[in-house]
Nucleic acid binder design. Structure first.
Lengths: 163, 163
DNA sequence: CAGTACGTTCATTCCTGATTGAACGGAATC
DNA sequence: GATTCCGTTCAATCAGGAATGAACGTACTG
């Protein structure tokens, strides 16, 4: 059972991810699992999203790497099952933070190699790098705050039989 | 005169932007103008970055829309000149913030249309949207803080004859 | 030891957005 | 008013990553 509104949400998440330079299907998979609220198999993803097995596998693992999904093998079962973590956004945020730090370091390093006589330009570039660095710090702060909220009011685990 | 280190920086910015789903050339243009520190014409961009006039124009205006560049016509001159604003990162940040708010609204709206019996899923999706909304708020706060710093220690306007 | 059911990999195909470059239009100059 | 110099637009091309699906490896099953 898939209401049109749910499909729309899944599609929208796909577009959103796409517009951010990430695979559209990854967004759809995440949306699907957020809606599901329970573990789903690769096969279920393929059926629901009409994507190939390869895509489902690849993108699920991609999301696993970012920490947005968790893979579980319920009891002695033959299929992997995938589950959106309680607060997927938090994981995504931390991925961005990591990327920012990497960028900051790279830019700072490059600025360090600027030739004599370009100190002002160097300064401007270092300021630019600092933005990334300080933003990363700020985002850590932010993540910590969100993390607290989650602890304070943990996800209710009531599941509805939705599918 | 373009040192290799500077070219590397420009290229890196291009890759960075590319990896974030934005036109590579836009990143290069911004990098070029940050290094320059002074207004540059479209023609200069074309020469320095080896890109077409169309690209230079399109991407410069794109950056203008985000607020990272400013277009000036020095005195009675026949060419536009482009200039990186004092704190380009701030402008970029605000663009992201805007996008986050839009996403939050869109997702919330879609969640509102979920059918009966899917309240839990609806809740999860709304939580997800809230993340975007609250992140946007947080980024505003952050932008305000950066803005203050800029006021406190304004950009030094010393220019070195670098080119 | 077949036979089956999964998940992963990888060469290929596909698609979309970036980039180009020629054509256009407007403003300034002579 | 003709010419030149710009910036913009847009149709066509290009490039690069996403998506596919067949082939492969592995772990169960009978």
């Amino acid at each position: 059972m898939n209401d049109a509104a749910i499909d729309e949400f899944i599609q929208a998440m796909g577009q959103l991810w796409h517009s951010e330079g990430r695979p559209r299907i990854a967004g759809q998979v995440l949306a699907y699992l957020i809606v599901a609220g329970e573990p789903r198999s690769l096969q279920q993803m393929c059926d629901a999203l009409q994507i190939s097995k390869g895509s489902a596998s690849t993108n699920a693992r991609l999301l696993e790497d970012t920490g947005a999904l968790r893979r579980v093998r319920p009891l002695g079962a033959r299929q992997d099952a995938w589950l959106a973590v309680p607060n997927p956004s938090l994981a995504l945020l931390q991925t961005v933070t990591r990327r920012f730090r990497t960028s900051a370091e790279a830019i700072t390093r490059l600025a360090g190699a600027f030739p004599e006589g370009m100190e002002a330009a160097q300064g401007r570039v270092e300021d630019f790098a600092d933005f990334y660095r300080r933003s990363a710090d700020f985002m850590d702060e932010w993540a910590a705050r969100i993390g607290q909220d989650c602890q304070a009011e943990p996800q209710e685990s009531k599941t509805d039989g939705e599918d």
